[in-house]
Design a protein around this nucleic acid. Structure first.
Lengths: 339, 339
DNA sequence: TTGAAAGCGCTAACAG
DNA sequence: CTGTTAGCGCTTTCAA
């Protein structure tokens, strides 16, 4: 790949199409770009020539003059952490991909790990190679979002970034983590449970903090002993559940910060011979269907539409002139067997 | 985004750098592209000007003349199937990303589902927007690889494509699925197990077929009853394990096609009160560490270096003139508690 | 070793 | 409504 592909040689140009159709380059350009105001007869001829020749516009040439790139960067920081534990990003990517594809915009994927990469990504984004960026800021202390803000590229964040409200210059898309958590805990309470515990997510992520806040909204008086720190993984859920059981053997309900940690909790509960939901009711978060439906009993959980969040991120980024506001999607409690 | 970003306006051009350094555009271009044969004094001046102005080359302009794009497409077909069940792709993506990044090449992600997308991807790839493609062909009957072959773009496949040997015009990178499977089964046999079962992967994927073949290589006389079809998921593993136990209650070892299905099998084994490895020894495949180390007991499994496979795919694609051969990476048995 | 000049393929005024 | 024209920013001969 040090040389231009010889195979795909001699791609036809606008010029060629113009000649074939017997019109000027400008006219072809108009037709190709869907400009109105070309006589239908001519337009038809042009389209015919395009088909015959298999003409595909040269993006580089187009970019050069329009100063657009029809490309959006998706930045995922520190993939090791969660990307691989959790179908979350994959689903969001799918939503993004669908939206971009439908508008014929390229998805340029940027995976980063560590400080060097931050700089590189900053340079890349300021380099003006893409029209915008969709950024997943995983950790509260991640410097990347700041760097990106500085890059001067239109940006939409996935998940609420961890900076003080009002500081933000870029919108974000998130689900109503706090409201969803409240719904989960209220459901547990409505079941008559009085000793409700919470297994948190990784507390360096806003989603985990927000869900914890939601828990406290409903149970402000809950003893700290009923809150165990997890990390969104099944293993973390197991650990937290063990702690909980040791500290508060009387616990009769658990709200886990996501389905994965709930599945871990469920495992420990079984291991200790406790019945779910009779002895301990469990609610998760995410409605990661392949997880939530496979546990025993199937998991009652808070659904968020992850793919839609991705789609929305792209839509907002691309909607200059439309609403540039952050969006918080609603959640919905899904009842299955565990609570 | 209907308009060029006004924020990141007025990027400096080669022209500007040239003026600043008091040389011609050509000289700046040479320095920027690492051409030898520029007097060091001048080169230094140019580099200085580049830094001062924060010059970043305009890729579109460069592409237009070089006919290269410094971009590679990564095509993942039908993500719903596995991408989301399994950290597999994420790891491979990471390897690819690292390699591309180190060479300053863009990763353009193409996610497809269904026939319409196939055409679109075909058009995109023939469109000459990227210098090459890395393609994951999941299913034996996937038409996409064929379409891509036709697109005339240099391609490397991830995983052995499902067409007859010799048909392939593009190299692939895979791990030694068959050899790894043999090692796993031999290990079980060496433990004195005489009734070894196999939980397959999704048999419309070559990796699953190859692992099954490896199993049969070692145990050609094994009764079909000892082979249960899974699908690489924990749920599939559970189902298969149940079948196995019902059909052959005397089974004393299981080789599962991957760690995820092994974890499902383990669950069923516990549920039925069987001890692992005393009553039934279990071996997985992949060494998906977060899975394999969290099961109880921890999983003995066949390790493959997934990230390296990704890196290698990129390296092969980019190594025109180097070895254009397919590569099959070795695997390694990792002993933990389950066998 | 360096510079001048000629485009790469396309869009966007501006005329007609 | 259509064509003419002038570049977008860069690399690359070709001369000097």
């Amino acid at each position: 790949m040090t040389e231009p592909p010889t195979s795909a040689a001699a791609r036809p140009t606008l010029e060629a199409v113009a000649a074939r159709a017997g019109v000027s380059r400008a006219t072809v350009s108009r037709v190709v770009n869907g400009d109105t105001g070309v006589r239908e007869a001519l337009a038809e001829k042009v389209r015919h020539a395009v088909d015959e020749l298999g003409y595909v516009p040269n993006r580089a040439a187009r970019s050069l003059v329009t100063r657009r790139h029809d490309a959006v960067a998706v930045v995922i920081a520190e993939p090791e952490t969660r990307v691989f534990a959790d179908p979350f990003f994959a689903l969001q990517l799918r939503g993004i991909s669908k939206e971009l594809t439908s508008r014929d915009i390229q998805l340029v994927l940027l995976l980063t790990e560590g400080r060097d990469d931050h700089e590189r990504v900053g340079r890349y984004l300021s380099g003006g190679h893409v029209d915008g960026a969709l950024v997943f800021s995983l950790h509260l202390d991640d410097p990347l979002p700041g760097i990106i803000q500085g890059a001067g590229v239109p940006t939409v964040f996935g998940g609420r970034p961890g900076w003080p409200d009002g500081t933000a210059t870029s919108p974000y898309v998130d689900c109503d983590n706090r409201g969803g958590a409240r719904a989960a805990v209220r459901h547990l309470v409505s079941l008559g449970r009085t000793r409700v515990a919470h297994i948190t997510g990784a507390l360096d992520q806003t989603s985990a903090v927000d869900r914890l806040d939601g828990f406290r909204d409903v149970l402000p008086e809950a003893d700290d002993a009923y809150v165990a720190e997890g990390d969104f993984t099944p293993a973390g859920g197991e650990r937290a559940m063990r702690e909980l059981l040791d500290r508060c053997p009387d616990v009769d309900a658990v709200f886990a910060a996501n389905d994965l940690s709930a599945s871990g909790a469920l495992r420990v509960l079984h291991e200790r011979g406790m019945r779910v939901p009779e002895d301990v009711a469990v609610v998760g978060f995410d409605d990661m269907v392949p997880v939530a439906e496979q546990t025993s009993p199937p998991l009652t959980t808070v659904r968020q539409d992850i793919e839609e969040m991705g789609r929305l991120m792209a839509r907002i980024l691309l909607s200059r002139g439309g609403p540039e506001e952050s969006v918080v999607l609603p959640t919905e409690l899904v009842r299955r067997g565990s609570a």
